[in-house]
Design a binder for these strands. Structure first.
Lengths: 147, 147
DNA sequence: AGTTACAGTTTACAATTGTAATCGGTCGGT
DNA sequence: ACCGACCGATTACAATTGTAAACTGTAACT
């Protein structure tokens, strides 16, 4: 593990990454064209985002003639996992399950995905603890941890 | 629906909210004491966070003598759902399922929660579409959308 | 060879966030 | 009646982020 420090990608930057992840590799012209359609961002704005992503180490550049070809340096699934995990980790451990349940209800997923999730959960069931305690208060959470 | 605009709570603010959510109502002294244990935040820092949360409409204040009693104005579960949904929504629709799977594998949950999730998913299975397409590129994603 | 056009870099600037000191008012104690 | 402790408000300041203009270099076209 070398580049483990986990680059953080901001919301706007995330849009750029999705383009590059999907196309695997592109030039800035393409990114700018595609993004200018979805949002009404000026080319300059998108250039800034690309530049920041390169500086952050999220995108690699390969010089090709006068321009660059951009490639993702961090895998999409990896970024997704990290982002979701970070979000979840800052929440009360006791309530995470319910939050995920609500999100699942509202997320459209393919049959295969739903089945995959069921499998993962089925595998978890036997080893799952009976209770997971609230970790919102410091120390041993003296008494006040109910609900 | 009146206050629907959905306050955004920053990471540091989230810590404060968790205290208030767990205690249901408290004064700043308590919040400061508890948080100063978990992080090494100066009391002034925590006061700032509380102030911002009040201004944002995330905390209500009730004057009690010289001080205030703080109460959550937005429900915890609600904030959790919104935060997770926002995060997910900015990701490629096609890959959300897998991302959730990875997160599930790493999240500790009670047996009851795991079972609840299984139930939710079982109910989703019949109506789940066969495929969910990538929505990373604009327009009709002309051809270039493969895995 | 000169100019255009575009790629990438630099600079800009306001809003949000993390982190905190200081100020001003008041309640409680001496 | 005065002082101190403490609460909440005001001010501060750097980093990150959203948004974008301006600058610079060079490849391509005339």
């Amino acid at each position: 593990m070398a580049t483990a420090v986990a680059v953080t990608i901001s919301d706007a930057e995330w849009r750029v990454m999705r383009i590059v992840w999907t196309l695997k590799q592109t030039d800035s012209r393409t990114i700018i064209n595609l993004l200018a359609q979805q949002h009404d961002w000026k080319p300059a704005t998108i250039k800034t985002l690309i530049g920041r992503l390169v500086k952050k180490g999220a995108l690699a550049t390969t010089k090709q003639g006068r321009q660059f070809i951009y490639t993702p340096l961090i895998p999409e699934q990896n970024a997704m996992d990290t982002a979701l995990t970070n979000e979840l980790d800052q929440m009360c451990a006791m309530h995470r399950g319910t939050a995920i349940a609500h999100v699942l209800e509202q997320t459209e997923m393919s049959k295969a995905d739903v089945q995959q999730l069921i499998d993962v959960l089925a595998k978890k069931l036997p080893t799952a603890p009976d209770t997971v305690h609230c970790d919102c208060l410091p120390g041993d959470c003296e008494g006040s941890c109910e609900s």
